[in-house]
Design a protein around this nucleic acid. Structure first.
Lengths: 340, 340
DNA sequence: ATGAAAGCGCTAACAT
DNA sequence: ATGTTAGCGCTTTCAT
């Protein structure tokens, strides 16, 4: 069926080893032999069978990336950045969607599917501290997102607490005092929502402002509709506020829409800040001030770190698993100007 | 290193064939033998090596998906839908980004990488009619997007002309007469921009309205910023208009932002309609009326069609390559109400 | 109902 | 500088 090394070897009048040498740029080949082989390859349209190569070499040249859902813009942009970084390194990416479901996340970690890849970049959402044992796997693994697990893994994440604190301080510095939050998770300590809320409280404390639970809006799914609903809850509560901190951009965008519906003007009545710096933050009406958490750096670093583990000759000779945190910055746009 | 069939066979006291039979649910196995093997599998934590299975069976259980860029929301949502459809069929998806660059698209079609997959779902953007020969590949291939090539391939697409005509007719029926277009491509006949513009012109013709080139905005990249720029061009031209047809949602969203900046109100002054029905169309301010082109159906159908080719015992016994077109509908929201 | 043996296409070890 | 051989882990004949 397909052209194999043997076919090329026969046509070129050499052994398959020589053909293999040519393909793999082995240095000591007579130019005449080399060109004869290359001609045969071109003539037959030979392409190496990567499955066979993988079986023999133990390397597939592919990695897996597991994210909750590509329809969430943050993860779509993250996946795009990971694929681009992997391609630059000559490897391909198998993308899995877990839906943030802990059962599917655990299943994925033990899936035989992973034998088709050299390692996994995993952005968990549903699994918990008690599932940490499931992360002790035999293949190279890099975790993304919140560090809710014991050490022992390379982990690439962002400065959630500090960045959220900086976002809140930015609003305070611009003159706001009653800052509502959209997207909190009831009782969560560890996790994006918990960390960002903590940063928010630290900023309030430092400024001597009181924490007012009546302007904290809760929603589990971080969609726009969740942000809209949480914003409505706060409005119905009746407590005044002069700014909104959306714990991510889609929440902020959903909240902004509800404000607009209600006749509240952004930013003249209420400032709005988000978190993620999605592409669309630049084009919303008004454009969204937000925290750029360093997504591109996260993707590049995750791939580089995974490849370092994969390529390690002696796995134990490698540096200990590390927590790598991206730099953040505040992207100032219209929804929350630096001064009112 | 890893546990193999041989290890399981040794522990269970059977041959590897029997273990293989158990794994593959071969019916004629003595229950006692079967449970002995299953115990050994559990005890050793055996997992089949899918690379070896692929080499022997000729099937990888993976397909490739090539799209321009996951940071474009349409393709992110499409990719998510394809991965979900594939997962339901028990296969995984290797995602490639071409950037819409014809060179990379052509390269991809001949990439040895594809030997790691059973087939390809390809959404081309850059290659042209003259590259049609490159599409005559030896592996199963399903094309997505505009049918700019000769037949001979399964192709899953949308009713571009009709849907664009319907969108335009919707605006006309609502009372609009001067409908600007944002996102046209200079001189393009075949392609999303060309087809949708054609549908627009057909609707104008049918309604007895003149086509006015001064309210057609051109932009090659279908980003929000492109939509914004094309909208500005039209405004600078000074010709009046009472509606905007964005040839996709991001263009429409970018245009809407410029209208708002200029003090033009949507929809009271100008109606805006898009095309794609992205998740975000529902949450923009105002929410965006748009054409739902049947993305979910497209993803399901592309996967099902590709799998049919892959699973064909006799490739020639299959139905001829077909052009499959999704049903469309207009999602009516605030930016263009049915009646003003 | 189970086993023995071959071989998918390649790379690695060892020859020469 | 090139050839020979073995074998990665599995499925698939072919036996029994």
């Amino acid at each position: 069926m397909a052209v194999t090394l043997h076919d090329v070897a026969r046509v070129a009048g050499v052994s398959i080893k020589t053909v293999s040498n040519v393909i793999n740029d082995y240095p000591h080949i007579r130019p005449a032999t080399k060109s004869r082989v290359e001609d045969a390859i071109a003539e037959l349209g030979y392409q190496p069978n990567l499955t066979a190569r993988s079986l023999r070499s133990g390397r597939t040249g592919a990695i897996a990336l597991a994210v909750p859902d590509l329809s969430l813009p943050y993860f779509a942009e993250l996946a795009g950045a990971v694929i681009a970084a992997a391609e630059a390194a000559g490897i391909v990416v198998l993308v899995e969607q877990t839906g943030g479901d802990p059962r599917r996340e655990l299943e994925l970690l033990r899936s035989p599917r992973l034998t088709m890849t050299d390692g996994l970049i995993f952005s968990p959402l549903g699994i918990e501290q008690s599932d940490a044992a499931a992360l002790r796997v035999s293949y190279p693994l890099v975790l993304l997102g919140e560090r809710v697990f014991d050490p022992g893994h390379d982990h690439v994440s962002m400065h959630n607490v500090e960045a959220a604190r900086a976002a809140t301080e930015f609003l305070i510095a611009s003159g706001r005092r009653r800052i509502a939050v959209v997207g909190a998770h009831e009782g969560e300590i560890i996790g994006s929502a918990g960390f960002r809320l903590q940063g928010y409280r630290e900023a309030l404390d430092a400024a001597g402002l009181d924490y007012d639970p009546t302007i904290i809006g809760y929603t589990a799914p971080w969609h726009r509709s969740g942000g809209a609903q949480a914003m409505r809850d706060i409005l119905e509560g009746g407590s005044p506020f002069d700014a909104v901190f959306g714990l991510n951009d889609t929440l902020a965008l959903g909240a902004m829409r509800v404000l607009q519906e209600t006749g509240i003007r952004v930013p003249s009545d209420v400032s709005v800040i988000g978190f993620d710096d999605l592409d669309e933050a630049e084009y919303s009406i008004p454009s969204l001030t937000t925290v750029d958490p360093g997504r591109r750096w996260i993707a590049d670093t995750a791939v580089a770190t995974l490849l370092r583990r994969i390529n390690a000759d002696d796995p134990d000779a490698l540096p200990a698993p590390s927590l790598l945190l991206a730099e953040y910055r505040i992207a100032v746009r219209e929804s929350a100007p630096a001064r009112l």
